[in-house]
Amino acid sequence: MSGEAEFRRIAADIRRRIQAGEWAPGQALPSRAAMGSEYHVHEQTIRLAYDLLRRSALLDGQRRRGVYVAHPPAMRTLTDVDAKWPYDSETTDTRPHAATDELAGRLDVPVGILLQHETVECLEPGGRSAMLVTSWWRRRRRPHTSVTAELGVVPLTEEQAHALGLLVDSLAYRVMRTRLDPHGAPVETADLILPLDRWTIRLS
């Protein structure tokens, strides 16, 4: 098994053990050396597993001072898919994309036509990623007067998981938001990716 696959496997097992109650919130985990002996790996592999779990907010603490199980984060509730994010955000990708079959259908444009695009990482006040918003539109952004939304659940891609500090294939809500002009024609569409462990959805 590759080194990367090994530390991810160990991280998944530690996550399972925490969820089973082996360590409670606020309780310190064993040292990297002790866990390395238990899993029969170098302690550097445990460091990578701990770092991954720290990025996902399951663990807290300083790298050289030990880690402990983090207290559960506050849950947010999404009620307005078009609301402005109230905290900091970072635009992480603005490369144009050719319209896939799905995007062409959502925007009512020909398949393959070049679309403008951006991915925005919405951050909590403490700096942790809360959700990802990826938007597509044609030519320039235009005003909208109404919004439609469709809710589903999807596994995270590797890129999404890395941004959100979660394991690949973790499940997340996917809200497909489409903005419409006064005539009901789509002017922009977006995927809002919200981790299941950080959000509840209440759309009216």
Rank of each mutant, 00 (worst) to 15 (best):
A74D: 14
R179I: 08
I18L: 05
T178I: 13
P30F: 01
P186D: 09
M35W: 00
S170C: 07
A12V: 04
L123I: 00
T145D: 12
T178L: 12
S146A: 05
Y39R: 05
E150I: 11
R64I: 10
L171H: 11
G127Y: 00
T145L: 10
Q19K: 12
S56C: 10
V154G: 07
A185Y: 09
R76F: 04
L156A: 00
L53V: 06
E159S: 15
R76D: 02
D13V: 13
L166S: 06
P155Q: 08
V175W: 03
G165R: 07
D169N: 15
L166R: 05
A11R: 01
E90S: 14
A99G: 02
E38N: 12
R17S: 04
H40F: 07
R140W: 08
L103K: 05
L192A: 11
R142V: 10
E43R: 15
G36S: 00
Q27G: 09
L115G: 02
P96M: 15
V67C: 06
P25E: 03
E4H: 13
Q160Y: 07
W136C: 10
E159G: 11
V81W: 03
W137P: 01
H162A: 15
L48N: 15
R177E: 06
A5N: 13
G61W: 02
T134P: 03
H40K: 14
I18K: 04
R16Y: 08
G21F: 03
D191W: 14
V109S: 03
P182I: 00
G21T: 03
W85F: 05
T148Y: 07
V154N: 09
W137D: 04
L114S: 14
W137M: 05
L52C: 03
A11P: 02
R138A: 14
M1W: 06
A172Q: 04
S37E: 12
L48P: 09
E121R: 15
Q62G: 13
A33T: 10
A104M: 06
R15Q: 14
A83L: 06
R55I: 02
W199C: 03
D191K: 13
A98I: 08
G126K: 08
M131G: 02
G127F: 01
E4A: 14
S2T: 11
K84G: 09
M1T: 12
A172R: 04
S129I: 07
A12D: 05
E188K: 08
Y173N: 04
M35D: 00
A83W: 06
R15P: 02
L78K: 03
S2P: 07
S31Y: 04
D82A: 15
V187P: 01
A99W: 02
G66Q: 02
A33M: 09
R95G: 07
E90I: 14
T134C: 09
P143F: 07
R65V: 07
D101I: 15
